[in-house]
C-alpha cells in the first residue's frame, strides 16, 4: 500500500471512528513522523533501553521523578537510569509513570502483560476467558436488536479490570494481526473507556494491580 502523502510504501496505519464514521490513515514512516505519530525506531531492545534512559529529559524524569525512591528498597529512579536495574518488585509500582512509556518502547509497543498468570491467580485468568468469550464479537454485530451491552456490564462487575483490559488487548492484537480494522477500532475504543475507568478506580494506588502477596484485598476467587 502506498503512503497517502507520497509514493513511499505505507508502514503506519491508523483507523479511527470519528462521529460514527471510519477514518483511515496510511502513511510512510517519514510522513507519519511529520504528522506527529510516535513511530517506533527499530533496534536492539537493550540499546534502545540504554539510549532511552540516557536521553530521557522529560520534566517528570528530571524533577521529582529522578529523586523519587521506591519505599520498599530505597532504589531511586536516578539509580535505575544509571544501571538499568530495578531494586525490587515494588519498584515497578513506584516508578510506574516513568516505566510505562519506557517499557512500551523497549517491547515494541507492548505495555501490558499478555500470557501466563501464576496458578494462585488462575481465577483471574479464568474470569478473563469468560469475559473474553462474552466480549468476543458475535459475527457480525447485530445493531437491529437495539440491545446494547447489557450482559457485558453484568459480567464486568465481577471481573478484575486489569484482566478485562488484558483480554481486550489480546483481542485487539488478534484483530490487528487479522487486519480486521473495524473490530480493532471498536476494541480500542472499549479499551480507552475501560482504561479511564480503571485509572479512576485505582486512585492513588498507582499500579494497585501489583500483587506481591496473595492477600490483596477484594481479590477473592470468584
Amino acid at each position: 500500500m502506498k503512503c497517502q502523502k507520497c509514493d513511499n510504501e505505507a508502514t503506519v496505519h491508523e483507523v479511527m471512528i470519528k462521529g460514527g464514521k471510519q477514518v483511515e490513515k496510511h502513511l510512510c514512516e517519514i510522513c507519519a513522523k511529520a504528522e506527529g505519530f510516535a513511530v517506533q525506531s527499530k533496534g536492539q531492545v537493550a540499546t534502545l533501553l540504554t539510549q532511552f534512559l540516557a536521553t530521557q529529559v522529560t520534566p517528570t524524569a528530571q524533577g521529582e521523578g529522578v529523586r523519587s525512591a521506591c519505599r520498599s528498597c530505597g532504589t531511586t529512579y536516578a539509580q535505575f537510569r544509571a544501571t538499568g536495574d530495578l531494586g525490587c518488585p515494588d519498584c515497578y509500582a513506584a516508578f510506574d509513570a516513568q516505566l510505562g512509556p519506557l517499557l512500551e518502547r523497549a517491547h515494541e509497543g507492548g505495555g501490558r502483560h499478555v500470557g501466563k498468570v501464576p496458578k494462585r491467580l488462575a481465577h483471574l485468568q479464568r474470569a478473563a476467558m469468560t469475559e473474553a468469550s462474552e466480549l468476543a464479537p458475535k459475527t457480525p454485530p447485530a445493531p437491529s436488536t437495539g440491545a446494547p451491552s447489557g450482559p457485558v456490564k453484568a459480567t464486568r462487575t465481577v471481573v478484575d479490570p486489569h484482566v478485562q483490559l488484558a483480554s481486550l488487548r489480546a483481542q485487539l492484537q488478534g484483530a490487528v494481526a487479522g487486519e480486521r480494522y473495524e473490530d480493532a477500532a471498536r476494541l480500542r475504543d472499549q479499551l480507552k473507556t475501560l482504561e479511564s475507568g480503571a485509572n479512576e478506580a485505582q486512585g492513588e494506588a498507582g499500579i494497585a494491580g501489583q500483587v506481591q502477596g496473595p492477600n490483596r484485598p477484594g481479590e477473592q476467587p470468584t
Binding site: 536495574d85 530495578l86 518488585p89 519506557l102 523497549a106 486489569h162
Partner: peptide
C-alpha cells in the same frame, strides 16, 4: 514458590527488558 507478579506487567524481573512473560 510465591512469584512476584503484577497483572499489568506480568512476572516482575530485575531488568525491565525481561518483564512480562520472562521468556
Amino acid at each position: 514458590l510465591n512469584y512476584a507478579f503484577s497483572p499489568k506487567y506480568g512476572y516482575l524481573t530485575a531488568c525491565p527488558t525481561n518483564v512480562g512473560t520472562g521468556l
